[in-house]
Computed example of a mutant assay.
Amino acid sequence: MAEMIEIETLTHDGHFPAYCAAPAGAAKAAIVVVQEIFGVNPGIRAKCDTLAAQGYLAIAPDLFWRTQAGVQLDPDVPEQFQQGFGLMQKTNLDLAIRDVEAAIRAARGRLGDAHAKVGVVGYCFGGRVAYLAATRTDADAAVGYYGGGIDHFLGESYAIGKPLLLHFAEQDHFIDAETRTRIHAALDGNRHVEIVEHPGVDHGFATEHGKRRDDAAAERADARTAAFFAEHLG
């Protein structure tokens, strides 16, 4: 079952929308799904639906709600791609992380257990948010796909105390090899962190729809993510 829900901010001064997909039976845990720069679009909702089919309660908060609530963009349309960049630039990242924390709390509330396990998975902009969820929230596990800008927050890596899986594309034209080398240098020594580089693919390879997707690489990455969450949230 899927529905739109409202989540209260941590400061109790507002509410923001989120897509929520629930499994047919009792959820074994919850996962917060963090959008790309294109909003909670059909691809992100499909990610939630897949997680629900795997037995998780999946919640995708609208992190652009303060600027433009309900935006759904198609990355294959150049004008909409640029619109997404503009929305990201207007988004307060610190508030976005706090909204993810609010979504984590809301997930535990829906599961009826204040100590229920909740993971975070994010893509692109959401990959950066997922990394920061690992440093700033009490998420039980986090996965980031091709998170741009992670290298600007490596100073926070000391706070990573729970499992974190990062997927990168070997041919990523937004996150070059030098940047990935800096990320490896900062994180490879942390026993909680696993970094996987996927050969021959570019940024966005695991999107559900559109020209950026590479089926083989997406399936390999998603299988690894599924095993990661099964281990750490199961």
Rank of each mutant, 00 (worst) to 15 (best):
N41P: 11
H184W: 10
V118F: 00
D176I: 07
E208K: 07
E170A: 14
A58P: 12
V201N: 00
A96R: 08
K90Y: 07
R98V: 02
A227Y: 00
I195Q: 03
G204K: 04
Y131F: 15
D74Y: 00
G127W: 02
A134L: 02
Y158M: 14
F85D: 12
G144E: 03
N41Q: 09
F38W: 14
R191N: 04
G234C: 02
V32E: 07
K162Y: 10
Y145A: 01
F229K: 08
G148I: 11
F228Y: 00
E194P: 00
V196M: 12
K28I: 08
A133F: 00
F205G: 02
Q54H: 15
H167T: 06
D62T: 05
R212M: 15
S157I: 06
Y123W: 14
D76W: 03
L164G: 09
H12V: 03
L87H: 08
F168Y: 15
I195K: 03
D202I: 05
A226T: 08
A216I: 07
Q89P: 09
T11F: 13
L10I: 12
L93E: 09
A103G: 04
R110S: 10
E156K: 12
R220A: 06
I44L: 15
E208R: 08
A226V: 01
H167I: 03
C48I: 08
Q171E: 15
A221E: 01
R136F: 02
T179Q: 12
